[in-house]
C-alpha cells in the first residue's frame, strides 16, 4: 500500500538531471511554476507538454513508474478537469443531455488546467526522484541563508527537515510492522464502518507515537554526546557545487519562457 507511493522518494541514477546541483533544480522548479502560467493557448500548452517529456527523457525515469506512482494525483487532476468541464459556461454548447451542458470553453479550460497540473506534478516529482533528500535540504538551507538576517532559524529548520527525511523510511517500516502485529491480533483496519476503522487506528497510532518519542529522545542524546550544541561554530561537510550545466538548465528554462511569451495569444 504505502510502498507504491512514489512521490517524495529518491531513485538513484546518473542521468543529466540527477547530476544537476540541487539548488539549480529547486530554482528551476520554482521558476517553472511561474512559467507554466504564461501558457494560454493550444500551441503554448503543447510546447509545455513537449518540454516536460523532454525532461522526463533526460531523467531516465521510466514513464510507467511515474504514471503508476502518481495515480493518487491523477484522481485529483480528473476531478479538477470535471469541475471546469461542467461549471464553465462560455462559448458554444458542444454537448447537451438532460440538464447537463458542456461548453466549448469549459472543455478547453478543463484540458488546460489538467495539463498545467500534470506538468507541475511531474516536474516536482522528477525533482524529488532525482535528488537525494539531503541535497534538497542543503539547497534549501543555502538558498534561504540570507533570511538568517531576519532571525529565521535556517540551520535548525534544515537540520529538522533532514532528520525527518532520514526517519521517514524507518517510520514507514515501523508503521508496517505495527499494523501487521495488530492485524495478527485480529484488528482490522481495512473493513467495517467508519467508526470501526477509526477505532482500529488507535492501536496503530499509540505505539507509533511511543516509538517516535523514544527515537527522538535517543537521537537527541546521541547528538548531544557527539557534541551538537546548535549551529554556532559548526563547519559544513556538504558542499554544493554549481557547474556550467546548472546555469545551462536555468537558461533553457528562460528560453522556454521567451518562446511561450512569443506564442501566447
Amino acid at each position: 500500500m504505502l510502498e507504491k507511493m512514489i512521490f517524495g522518494r529518491f531513485i538513484p541514477g546518473d542521468s543529466f538531471i540527477h547530476r544537476l546541483d540541487a539548488r539549480a533544480k529547486l530554482i528551476f522548479v520554482f521558476l517553472f511554476i511561474a512559467v507554466v502560467f504564461i501558457a494560454n493557448n493550444w500551441i503554448t500548452y503543447a510546447i509545455l507538454v513537449l518540454f516536460t517529456f523532454l525532461i522526463i527523457r533526460m531523467s531516465r525515469i521510466r514513464l510507467y513508474f511515474l504514471v503508476n506512482g502518481l495515480k493518487p494525483v491523477v484522481i485529483l487532476i480528473i476531478f479538477t478537469f470535471l469541475l471546469h468541464l461542467f461549471f464553465t459556461r462560455e462559448g458554444a454548447i458542444i454537448f447537451e443531455w438532460k440538464f447537463l451542458r458542456i461548453y466549448e470553453e469549459g472543455l478547453r479550460q478543463g484540458i488546460f488546467i489538467s495539463i498545467r497540473f500534470f506538468v507541475l506534478v511531474i516536474l516536482t516529482s522528477i525533482l524529488t526522484l532525482t535528488t537525494t533528500p539531503i541535497s534538497i535540504t542543503d539547497a534549501l538551507e543555502t538558498l534561504l541563508n540570507p533570511l538568517k538576517k531576519w532571525k529565521l532559524p535556517v540551520h535548525e529548520l534544515a537540520l529538522m527537515m533532514s532528520i525527518s527525511l532520514r526517519f521517514i523510511p524507518t517510520l514507514m517500516d515501523e508503521t508496517d510492522k505495527i499494523m501487521k502485529a495488530q492485524m495478527a491480533r485480529g484488528s482490522d483496519m481495512t473493513t467495517g464502518s467508519m467508526k470501526e476503522r477509526m477505532n482500529a487506528i488507535v492501536p496503530l497510532l499509540i505505539p507509533l507515537f511511543v516509538s517516535a518519542f523514544k527515537r527522538a529522545e535517543d537521537l537527541a542524546t546521541a547528538m548531544e554526546v557527539r557534541g551538537y550544541k546548535g549551529g554556532e561554530g559548526r563547519t559544513r561537510y556538504r558542499k554544493l557545487e554549481w557547474a556550467t550545466k546548472d546555469t545551462v538548465i536555468i537558461v533553457i528554462l528562460l528560453i522556454l519562457a521567451i518562446i511561450l511569451v512569443y506564442f501566447r495569444s
Binding site: 515501523e174 510492522k177 505495527i178 501487521k180 502485529a181 495488530q182 495478527a184 491480533r185 488507535v202 492501536p203 499509540i206 505505539p207 511511543v210 516509538s211
Partner: peptide, 11 residues
C-alpha cells in the same frame, strides 16, 4: 505471531 520486539505493539 510473536513478532520481533513485540513490546512495540502495546498500546
Amino acid at each position: 505471531i510473536v513478532f520481533q520486539f513485540p513490546e512495540h505493539q502495546l498500546f
